[in-house]
Write a protein that binds this DNA or RNA. Sequence first.
DNA 1: AATAATTTTTCACTTAAAGTGAAATTAAAT
DNA 2: ATTTAATTTCACTTTAAGTGAAAAATTATT
Lengths: 104, 104
Amino acid sequence: MFNNTDKSYPIELVADFLGVNSRTLYYYERFSLVCPARRGRKRYYSKQDISWLEYIRELMYDQGMNLRSIIVLIKRRDNVILTRCPEDVVNSFKNYLMKMDDYF
Amino acid sequence: MFNNTDKSYPIELVADFLGVNSRTLYYYERFSLVCPARRGRKRYYSKQDISWLEYIRELMYDQGMNLRSIIVLIKRRDNVILTRCPEDVVNSFKNYLMKMDDYF
DNA sequence: AATAATTTTTCACTTAAAGTGAAATTAAAT
DNA sequence: ATTTAATTTCACTTTAAGTGAAAAATTATT
């Protein structure tokens, strides 16, 4: 139907699919952990975004990582992360205005 | 002076060396993350205990892991862990009375 | 033995990360 | 213009990790 990088799924659907609150997705977005497309003001996520978000949950709940350490891996361009992390997320960390630092 | 597994260092010295509060070491002990010897009621730690504790701190602060996930790795007998984790700690997880579960 | 000193234990507290509920705001649709 | 729906804001909750201080227990000293 949609290809992997087509930003087509609205936030409620994604939240529902992942079993998380949509506020959690807004929360992740503050750290640029995911970069949905905006059409109008609505957010749309790709399949890749969704599996990346699933991977984040796995890292957190199975591997016991926290958001900060996931961000560190993205900044480091760690291989484990890069195979899964959408390009737009990686790019959002190019400007070394470090996302997390505003909030912590 | 002492070999690697000699339990010879008292808690205050270890806490001091690691830059943590001694209460933190008691806290880790509740989860069997470290098993000091007791002579009288005093605790004594080995060199291996100390470098294992250092590794725990590294996992937590550099790798962003949490105590629960470190415990999961010990239970899994994960290779990364087993090379560092003292035998008595590994053994303390043999009885599958899972340490963490009483408290969480 | 009595007292002092030290270690351990307990209890309740602090801090920070992660997440969330609900109202207010803003934009889009009718 | 009014309704509808997504977003934003604010303050709150929850949990993990850690800690301060007093109480209890043990060991050492006089």
